[in-house]
């Protein structure tokens, strides 16, 4: 069942952030939601994920196995990198050396997350979503805070891991949108789509 938003609206006080948004997201490919800061991209993504209820309208098709990179990293700071990844997979023994190596976090498996830099935390958050192997992956600016070389490496790895999956990517970076291809939804401010 495809992910579909029907006429969803969301207000915060008097501020209407999303106004009558309707869209059916293509299955097994990437859809990019773009727009300037504050135009409601993350709010829309939260509603699509089902963690934020719209004031009106409905979201269907998000009952599948979903994974996410949130706007904030939402990592368990006192757990090691590997333990943060183990949280989302069955069992307690799995090792993620190859995955960590692929995103430039080789040798960081046993480091507590609180000791990582912002970019390293972001990559851990992205890796957590990828190793979960979801049917639908929601990515809210997953590459922010990464230097250009690392970003390129991580984007390539992410594209490879998500090939053939339904991905909703939120970004304001044209380069990221072009790299992942697929349909691009441009959110405008004021709120029209």
């Amino acid at each position: 069942m495809a992910l579909r938003a029907d006429n969803i609206t969301k207000c915060f006080g008097d501020n209407k952030v999303i106004d009558s948004f309707t869209h059916e997201f293509a299955e097994n490919c990437t859809t990019v939601i773009m727009g300037a800061s504050g135009c409601g991209k993350s709010t829309l993504l939260s509603m699509l994920m089902g963690v934020l209820a719209p004031d009106s309208g409905t979201v269907t098709g998000n009952q599948a196995r979903t994974g996410a990179v949130f706007q904030e990293d939402r990592l368990c700071e006192n757990l090691s990198v590997q333990s943060n990844l183990r949280l989302v997979v069955p069992g307690r023994k799995r090792s993620f050396d190859a995955e960590l190596e692929a995103v430039g976090l080789g040798g960081c498996a046993d480091k507590p997350v609180r000791e990582l830099s912002g970019g390293m935390k972001r990559r851990t958050a992205l890796l957590r979503a990828l190793v979960y192997e979801p049917d639908i992956l929601f990515l809210d600016e997953p590459f922010k805070g990464l230097d250009s070389d690392t970003k390129r490496t991580v984007m390539e790895y992410c594209k490879k891991r998500t090939a053939g999956k339904t991905v909703i990517l939120v970004t304001h970076d044209k380069e990221e949108a072009d790299f992942f291809g697929g349909e691009i939804i441009e959110l405008q401010r004021p709120l029209s789509y």
Partner: peptide, 19 residues
Amino acid sequence: KLKVMADIFHISPFKRFVG
């Protein structure tokens, strides 16, 4: 917000409690 993260990833009760 970690609770929301745990819900999204369907983290088991044991791992949720400990982790």
